[in-house]
């Protein structure tokens, strides 16, 4: 048995070495799979702040994933068709620059998280789950009927967007970019968990009444966590859209929200690297089981049931044999 800290370092080494090996062996598909896993991990790491630390079971995080995706899709679509996004009151043009797209993705998904959070946090428990699910679905149906940006068919972007100094079309360079963002977010999350805000949020999950007695507002703490969480998932959405060079309403689907929760639980709730382990396991299973059987989701379902019913603490809990987490 190893400690969680050592396991985390091992995972990080794997995230660096496996794609490097694939690069050396000239297997670009493996790098693409790894990129997919890293982006899912980032999206789930965002959700983990709300769900793992804040205890907010959001079944609507696909909303932010999709908003990030559409931020990329819409900006790049206007850039590739040389049309302006809007001409009044300001001239806004499309862009192919990743940093600008990321900023837009983060700001728009944070704003959406603020509005959804303000409404949803008026309630708690099972109401919260259903309401976030419903808001996610609202975006799904909205994009389906939004004919200006492809409606049900979505938007195709012909060339991946640019990042200064990198050739983003090279799989290993794009992977490195995504991994760097994931590491930065995980590092920030680790700091956040130890910072006064993280400690207060953790306490707000466990005993809101006590947090209130010391003069903090648990709802505001949770709202802040929800907004940060939505912004990170939105950034992941923009990267995911860039990976596929395609956005469609399926990014908003409720299955996506469910899968984000699944990543966290497979890895281990409230653990820093839980989303990474969960997303990597999911992508590997999808690849291997999906190759074996068309009905691989049955096996995934069975595995999930087993984890929920019998194995607490997810895979990281299993490997480190230590209950608990954040």
């Amino acid at each position: 048995m190893i400690t969680e800290r050592h396991l985390n370092l091992l995972i990080l080494a794997g995230l660096i070495l496996v794609p490097l090996w694939a690069w050396a062996a000239d297997e670009p598909f493996t790098i693409t799979l790894a990129t997919r896993a890293v982006i899912f991990a980032l999206a789930a790491a965002g959700l983990n702040i709300a769900l793992g630390i804040g205890g907010l079971v959001s079944l609507g995080h696909a909303a932010f994933f999709g908003i990030g995706g559409y931020a990329m899709g819409i900006l790049a679509h206007h850039a590739q068709s040389y049309t302006a996004l809007s001409t009044w009151p300001f001239l806004i043009e499309g862009t192919k620059s990743m940093p600008v797209i990321w900023l837009v993705a983060i700001v728009t998904s944070a704003l959406a998280a603020l509005v959804i959070g303000l409404l949803s946090l008026r309630t708690a428990g099972v109401y919260f789950i259903m309401i976030t699910l419903a808001f996610g679905q609202m975006f799904y149906f909205f994009t389906i009927s939004w004919a200006a940006y492809g409606g049900e068919d979505g938007l195709s972007i012909y060339i991946r967007n640019d990042f200064p100094g990198l050739n983003t079309l090279d799989p290993i360079q794009f992977y490195g970019l995504c991994l760097a963002i994931l590491c930065a977010v995980l590092f920030a999350t680790a700091r956040l968990m130890r910072a006064p805000f993280g400690l207060a949020l953790n306490a707000a999950r466990q005993t809101p009444a006590r947090v209130e007695t010391v003069g903090l507002d648990p709802t505001r703490l949770k709202l802040a966590a929800f907004v940060i969480s939505g912004a990170i998932t939105g950034l992941a959405g923009a990267l995911f859209a860039d990976l596929n060079r395609f956005v469609s309403p399926t990014m908003f689907s409720w299955q996506m929200s469910g899968e984000l929760i699944v990543f966290i639980i497979i890895g281990g709730t409230g653990r820093l690297f839980g989303p990474v382990v969960g997303a990597a396991t999911f992508v590997m299973l999808e690849h291997w089981l999906g190759g074996l059987s068309e009905y691989w989701l049955i096996y995934l379902g069975g595995m999930l049931l087993a984890i929920v019913l019998f194995g607490r603490g997810g895979l990281i809990g299993l490997l480190t044999r230590r209950e608990g987490g954040a």
């Binding site: 769900l51 079971v57 079944l59 428990g125 099972v126 789950i129 469910g258 929760i261 699944v262 639980i265 709730t269 989701l297 049955i298 995934l300 379902g301 069975g302 999930l304 049931l305 984890i307 929920v308 019913l309």
Partner: peptide, 15 residues
């Protein structure tokens, strides 16, 4: 808790 219920019934949907 509700999280376990969500997850287990999500697994049931897949099955």
């Amino acid at each position: 808790d509700h999280l376990d219920q969500v997850l287990a019934t999500f697994a049931l949907i897949l099955i």
